[in-house]
């Protein structure tokens, strides 16, 4: 069994992000969001509050939304992760991104990467949500600009675009 001191140093983390295999090193205390941003250079995922409240750092890990500031990078060993960078296909925006664009679902845009991931998770589970279900679905994502009205509108529009279309991590 490894000695305690050896294990506090850098360890290797292997995971799949947006379909690509990555290997990076991190301290056990490195949070997943910093691993994504600083080690893998995937800076689309934002650090908002850094206290697990705001949801700006939301990514989809093994099919479920998580706040990547509340997960250790080492916990993502072997995991499959989808970040905002994995939504668009080349020049083509994801239907949820299109819907946010068309319905003014963002103002400053800081919460948007996390909001998009929560919207995707919701729509995968519930392709035709009511306004109330949308509001509950994004209960872990704070937006300080929009008042949420246009975000709910955007998710509703995205649902329409996506209905019947399967999108997976």
């Amino acid at each position: 069994m490894a000695k305690l001191t050896e294990k506090t140093e850098l360890v290797q983390v292997r995971c799949k992000v947006n379909g690509d295999a990555y290997t990076g090193t991190a301290e056990p205390r490195t949070l997943l969001v910093y691993f994504l941003r600083d080690v893998l250079n995937l800076t689309g995922t934002h650090v908002g509050c850094d206290t697990g409240h705001c949801g700006a750092c939301t990514v989809i890990m093994d099919g479920k939304t998580v706040k990547s500031c509340m997960v250790l990078a080492v916990q993502a060993e072997g995991a499959s992760i989808l970040t905002v960078e994995g939504l668009a296909k080349g020049e083509n925006l994801h239907p949820i991104q299109e819907a946010f664009w068309e319905n003014h679902g963002l103002q400053c845009g800081y919460c948007t990467p996390g909001m998009l991931m929560s919207a995707l998770f919701l729509l995968q589970r519930n392709p035709n949500p009511t306004d109330e279900e949308i509001r509950r679905g994004i209960d872990g994502n704070l937006c300080r600009c929009t008042g949420y009205v246009n975000i709910v509108k955007s998710v509703k529009a995205a649902a329409k675009k996506m209905r019947g279309v399967e999108v997976t991590a």
Binding site: M1, T5, T8, V11, P28, R29, L72, V74
Partner: peptide, 23 residues
């Protein structure tokens, strides 16, 4: 907002996990 340094173990069995907690 980074935790203090700690050692991380991901044991392959509960038995090993219990041993690690003991040691």
């Amino acid at each position: 907002m980074t935790p203090k340094k700690f050692a991380y173990f991901a044991p392959a069995s509960l038995k090993e996990a219990i041993q690690l907690l003991r040691e």
